[in-house]
Structures are given as C-alpha cells and as structure tokens.
Amino acid sequence: MVMSVTVVLSVMGGLAFRRRFRGSTVLFYLIIASLIIPSILVSLGVGLIFNILDLEVHWATSGFGSQLTWTLPFGLLIMFAVFNRFDKSYEEAARDLGASPWQTVRHVVLPIIAPMLIGVALFGFTLSYDEFARTLLTAGSYNTLPLEIFGMTTNVTSPVLYALGTLTTVFSFAIIGTFLLVVVFLRRRRIKSGSGAGSGLV
C-alpha cells in the first residue's frame, strides 16, 4: 500500500512542482521536514492526534499515514531530480502532433520515466518494510511485520522467524524480478514502435 501510494503521489508531486505555484516553497519544506524530525516523535505525534480527535489508532490509517511521512519525501526528491533533467521538447512534439495533456503524460512522459518509477517503488517498499519506529505507536492492536519480528526476538527464538526471513528474501527477489521484466517489456515495445515508425517513413 505504501509503495503504490508513494509512486503515485511522487509522480503527481514531481509534475506539480515543475511550475511555481503559490505556497510551493512552504509545501516543499513541510514535506522535507519529516526527514529531520526523529521517527519516534512522528509516531508519537500521529498517535496523539488520533487520540485527541477520538479516532481509532489502526495500521491502515494512522500507521499508513506515518509511514508515508517517511517514504514520500524520498520519492519526491527522486522525481524532482528526474524532472529537472527531463527534456520538455518531447512533450512539445506530442502536443504539436495533437496529443491531449493526458495522452502526453501517458504515452510520452510515463514511458520515459518508467525506470525511475521502478526505483521509487523499490525504495518506498524497502523503507516501509523496515520502518519500526514510525509504526510503533500507530499500528494499533495489530502488529506490522517489523513489530512482529521485534516481538519474536525478545522471546525465545522460534523457527517462524527463519521462515519469515526466507519468505522475505523470496518476496524481495520476486518484486525485483517483476520490475526488471516490466523494464525489458517496455524497452522491446519502444524498439518495435520505433522500427515501425522508421519503416513507415521509408
């Protein structure tokens, strides 16, 4: 969940910050500030806010939001670097050929930045998976996997811990392999479309 939302919001934020808008500087520093504040204080603050507002502290609400305060700034910083080097002439060419703004984003921008999106997704997944402090006071009555593993290490070590380590490794390699296959597929598709356009010109 955190990985998916981080990718979507990072792309949207990167596209939004390509142009100056009112309050952009304040918003930028507000986002980056969550990297400076200690994780345990963020967890405590989110938990207190939910208690004051009489909302249920649950991993799907408070825990989810507290993890986004950690993964989203990194995703946005990556997208800022990507769009700072992005050649806008591709978008201008698409608009000259009659593409709508959505078609330009879908068929031009997203395929070009796809490898970087994979990096943001893997980064967000890794940061969320290993985040302990920000979910310590915001997970509610249900433990996330890092909290469960921490609880296992404080008691007698059981074979479940080693089984979780094996599943974690297999799952991580599966995620990386899936994204690599997506990159290969997008490259082959781009090569085929380029060769088709070249043959049409001939």
Rank of each mutant, 00 (worst) to 15 (best):
G98W: 08
N143P: 07
G75V: 11
G198T: 06
M116V: 13
V109G: 08
T144P: 01
V57W: 08
A133I: 01
V202P: 03
R95M: 09
L201Q: 15
A60I: 08
I149L: 08
R85M: 12
G63R: 04
R22N: 02
G14Y: 10
F21S: 04
L167V: 15
V42W: 11
E148I: 07
L110H: 05
K192I: 13
V11I: 14
S199R: 14
L53Q: 13
D54H: 11
L55Y: 06
S66W: 04
F64D: 01
P146G: 11
I191H: 02
F64P: 00
R18D: 07
G63K: 01
L72M: 09
L41P: 03
G45E: 05
G194S: 14
F179P: 07
I40C: 02
I31F: 14
D54C: 08
Y162W: 14
L164K: 15
I36P: 04
S199Q: 12
V160R: 03
L15E: 00
A81F: 13
R106H: 06
V184H: 11
A197M: 13
I49A: 03
A60Y: 05
S199C: 02
M79C: 06
R189Q: 13
R22V: 12
L15H: 01
V46W: 04
S24D: 04
S141I: 06
L122Y: 03
K88P: 02
V11M: 07
A139Y: 06
M12I: 15
P159Y: 05
L122N: 09
T135K: 09
V108K: 07
L77N: 11
E148V: 06
L137D: 07
L55E: 12
T104F: 04
N84G: 02
G177Q: 04
P146S: 07
F132I: 10
